[in-house]
């Protein structure tokens, strides 16, 4: 079972090492981790996808909360949250199939962000499933290079993961 955690942390050097180190030494599995600054420059937000049952999730949450630099941990339920990843694919193209690639990109509402004589870079944001799907199609043309971010996630509606006053 996969869980998505939104973790607010102090924006300080070494915090990522503290969080990552915690996962490895306690034997928790990180599927992905994405981190960036929030609207408050003192606070960063991590989105961590972790696999494990409810007991594991419970321990992960409590252990994260024990870190002094961790301010808040929220479990985002998949039904109530939006999740997005970004991927870049460098695809091998030639005169014959370039338009075919463009068609696929249109269908997926992806973007072509670089065009070369023999390559194109396709940029796509979406759920992990959507990115997997376009990857499968692009494979037919030959993918030279892939880079994917970890998932970022946010609650739907008015609910927020914010620092309580």
């Amino acid at each position: 079972m996969k869980h998505t955690l939104a973790v607010l942390v102090e924006n300080r050097p070494g915090v990522l090492a503290r969080v990552a180190g915690l996962f490895s030494r306690r034997g928790f599995n990180i599927e992905s981790l994405a981190v960036g600054i929030t609207d408050n420059p003192d606070i960063s937000r991590m989105t961590i996808v972790v696999s494990g049952d409810d007991r594991v999730l419970d321990q992960v949450t409590k252990q994260l909360n024990k870190l002094i630099d961790v301010i808040k941990v929220s479990d985002l339920s998949p039904a109530d949250a939006i999740g997005r990843e970004l991927a870049l694919f460098k695809v091998k193209v030639d005169k014959g199939n370039r338009s075919e690639v463009i068609q696929i990109v249109d269908v997926f509402r992806a973007q072509i962000v670089d065009v070369g004589i023999k390559t194109m870079i396709v940029s796509i944001t979406g759920t992990g499933d959507k990115i997997d799907a376009i990857e499968k199609l692009l494979r037919n043309f030959g993918i030279i290079e892939v880079v994917r971010t970890g998932k970022v996630s946010m609650n739907r509606g008015a609910k927020t993961v914010k620092l309580e006053k």
């Binding site: 321990q59 409590k62 252990q63 909360n65």
Partner: peptide
Amino acid sequence: IDPAEISK
């Protein structure tokens, strides 16, 4: 006092 000890 340590919540992480509960049900560990």
